[in-house]
Design a protein around this nucleic acid. Structure first.
Lengths: 123, 123
DNA sequence: GTGTTATATAACCGAATGGTTCTATACAAC
DNA sequence: GTTGTATAGAACCATTCGGTTATATAACAC
């Protein structure tokens, strides 16, 4: 019997970080250059600590890195995890292109990528 | 002053659904053909109702559709939302390719895509 | 030193998440 | 009809999440 490995991967944190529209908007903003917390917070109706929390989530997911410049902690985008997301989704390309059927060639491949040996604990 | 629109989009549900490794494993399994709940549950140490819950999340995100065949409710993969994910991530491709700097050409484009007018309520 | 600015941290809150067990429903088999 | 099988739903629970306000820290300006 094949048991799937449900160990948390980098993808877990990345997808979770991207599930929030505020965080995606922050990434979009950072794509045009680094910015401090105040500047990032300006477009939203949420408090500064809420933005700081979002930034911590993005940082833990490796989507941003933070520097130091006087009192400011400028954030910079790190797109590496986004490449992992793109690569992951890309594995299903044939599926959305070939009309939902007959992906049997992918059978072994996709399963090997996400599965592993039996485990006794969830985490 | 520019306010970002943080309205929930389809991407919200898609990314949230993909953040769980069990659900990604289910999608991988479904890439090789439709399957019932019992069959999908087999590789995991979680209960059948837990799997049913995961399937409901995937269904709400549009990642699967469910049929009916005797007592079974076979699930089929719908990769449409995965294309949206791939397209979204793809917008950052130059960023992970061009060494993290100088993406100024993207400035206007990415921001227009995620922003909107000021809103007074969060939802 | 004082004051100001930028950010983080703490404490709290309500809602959502991911799991459980127990029960109900729907269909097939007999 | 009864029994068995596949699935969903309800109730519950602990944890996480996204927000808040109030406070603390850090670095500059004076």
């Amino acid at each position: 019997m094949v048991l799937y490995n449900v160990r948390a991967t980098r993808l877990d944190d990345t997808f979770a970080a991207l599930a929030d529209p505020t965080r995606r908007a922050i990434l979009a903003r950072l794509a045009s250059g680094e910015a401090g917390v105040m500047e990032l917070a300006k477009p939203f109706r949420i408090s500064q600590p809420a933005v700081s929390k979002h930034l911590k989530v993005l940082e833990r997911a490796g989507l941003i890195v933070r520097g130091r410049k006087a009192q400011s902690r400028p954030c910079r985008l790190r797109a590496g995890p986004l490449k992992e997301v793109a690569d992951w989704a890309e594995r299903y390309r044939r599926y959305w292109e070939e009309g939902f059927e007959r992906l049997d060639a992918y059978l072994g491949k996709l399963q090997r990528l996400e599965k592993a040996h039996a485990r006794k604990s969830t985490k």
